[in-house]
Simulated assay, not measured.
Amino acid sequence: MSLVLDDVTVRRGIGPVISGVSLEVAPGEITTLVGPNGAGKTSLLEAISGVVTSVGGQIRMDDHDLQKLSRRKRAKLGVSHVEQGRMIFPSLTVHENLKITARNKADVDEALSLFPELEKRIGSQTMLLSGGEQQMVVLARAFASKPRYLLIDEMSLGLAPVVFLRLIPTIKQIADTGVGVLLVEQFAHLALSMANHAVVVTGGRVSFQGAPAELLSDGDLLREAYLG
């Protein structure tokens, strides 16, 4: 079964930032969500994971109505949210960060296999790592939790393009294990190049949904994705 959003509305302040959004994230596939700044992309991910409460529509995973569940319960069901800003525990080592979500040593080892660079820094405090290495820790920690669906919000934020290029193939590796990925990313061309599905959100509404190749080949659609 998929993660399904049906006519979802999210309010912040006096009005809706997301209005009537419907989309589906399938297991083992990547859905890339693009749109201009302020389009509501972050709020949509936060509504799925339970950071904010949606006020309309449905968010379902299998037979579970996620809107009735706390953020913690959603996480236990397998919804993992990588938020903006590299949320690390800076005073803890790389290994200690991974152990927070992993059930056992095998989960830690599997997460580390995605990022061999981290094995050399396994005993280092994460505050001493580079920005790229810290983002690797965040992604590895999310993967160590054995998610069914992984929500990733702007993982390139503050990173050099060469570092982001290193991380992109890892998202595909994670999806290949059967995890459904919903990816919000400012580097739209790169994010769309590996996606199975593309969704454009402008003004809090879905303005396009379809094949990434169709979006990449349509200059007008792509400009809307960037500029609204």
Rank of each mutant, 00 (worst) to 15 (best):
E224V: 02
L216D: 00
V55H: 09
L192Q: 03
S156E: 12
L165K: 13
V108G: 01
A144D: 06
D7I: 03
G180Q: 06
L157I: 09
I100L: 15
D153C: 08
L44N: 05
G28V: 06
G50Y: 04
G123C: 09
V10Q: 07
G131S: 08
A47W: 07
A75G: 13
V163T: 11
V108I: 15
P27L: 08
D7T: 12
L221T: 00
P169V: 08
V82K: 05
E24W: 02
D109C: 06
I174V: 13
G15N: 13
P161C: 10
E110K: 14
A188N: 02
M194N: 02
R148D: 06
S19Q: 15
S145I: 06
L128I: 07
L157Y: 06
R141E: 05
D7A: 14
L69P: 00
L23Q: 04
I14N: 14
G132L: 09
G78W: 11
E214V: 04
P169E: 11
R166L: 06
N97T: 05
L139K: 03
L151F: 10
V82S: 07
L5D: 01
R72Q: 14
M194C: 12
T42Q: 07
E119N: 12
A144E: 02
T93Q: 06
V82W: 06
A188R: 03
H95R: 15
S145T: 04
K172A: 14
E96H: 00
V79I: 15
A26Q: 12
K68N: 12
L222D: 05
